[in-house]
């Protein structure tokens, strides 16, 4: 057992928190890109592509993230790919985020009134133009609250990556606890730091909603 001051503990935890933020950003950007592609596929090919997308989403939403992490971490080496904890966590979280965001955004696109599709079609706009100029801008505003809400969930979900050895905030907390035998203090600080990262996101959500305006 070693003795550390509160500031030393916080300092160590904050250094690890950067990795949590990095992993969250990678997962959100990667998942978001995947979700956009899935979204277009769903609407452009209502029969073939949309069914595949649905299976993918149901699979990813129906299994625990922890197990998805394990499958990626232990499964990728079987395919001959060298796996670092960061890579495994990133791949698993991108797949996970992609599935959830695709479903959230589908709901938002469906919420745009059908008349918008009809009016834009009647003017001769093709599918891509309809999505780009008419549907997605309206879906965007609807999408802000659930998307930011999911981003908060995602940031907290990165805590699971500690299980596969990724040096995120949670793992740092475990390391310090094992050294100082002060679990309540340490994990309390970990929770505070997670809150400090998540709270600005919710503020951002309200700001974005106001900025995008209401019709």
């Amino acid at each position: 057992m070693i003795s550390l001051s509160v500031w030393e503990i916080v300092h160590f935890l904050l250094l690890a928190a950067r990795w949590t933020l990095l992993l969250s950003a990678i997962a959100f950007l990667g998942g978001g890109t995947a979700a956009l592609l899935l979204l277009f596929l769903r609407y452009a090919q209502p029969r073939g592509g949309a069914t595949l997308v649905r299976y993918y989403i149901e699979l990813l939403q129906g299994t625990p993230l922890l197990l998805q992490l394990f499958l990626v971490f232990f499964g990728l080496p079987l395919l001959g790919i060298e796996v670092s904890p960061l890579l495994a966590a990133a791949v698993a979280l991108i797949l996970y985020a992609g599935a959830f965001l695709a479903e959230i955004w589908r709901g938002c696109v469906d919420a745009v009134p059908r008349g918008q599709w009809e009016a834009s079609a009647a003017l001769g706009l093709n599918f891509i133009s309809q999505m780009r100029y008419v549907i997605l801008p309206q879906a965007l505003r609807i999408a802000v609250p659930p998307t930011v809400g999911f981003l908060v969930q995602l940031l907290k979900a990165t805590a699971l990556s500690s299980i596969v050895g990724f040096n995120d905030l949670t793992r740092a907390g475990t390391i310090v606890t094992n050294a100082t035998f002060q679990p309540f203090l340490v994990y309390g600080l970990v929770a505070l730091i997670y809150f400090a990262m998540c709270y600005p996101l919710t503020v951002c959500s309200r700001f974005l909603e106001r900025k995008l305006g209401s019709y």
Binding site: G115, E118, A119, S129, V134, Q138
Partner: peptide, 26 residues
């Protein structure tokens, strides 16, 4: 051209933008 019972104007665009969208893009 078609005119709908529910108008179906694009709410996120101004009147002018509603009119110029299709001529520009199509």
């Amino acid at each position: 051209g078609m005119v709908f019972q529910q108008f179906n104007l694009f709410p996120h665009l101004t009147v002018l933008q509603n009119l110029t969208l299709a001529p520009q893009r199509v």
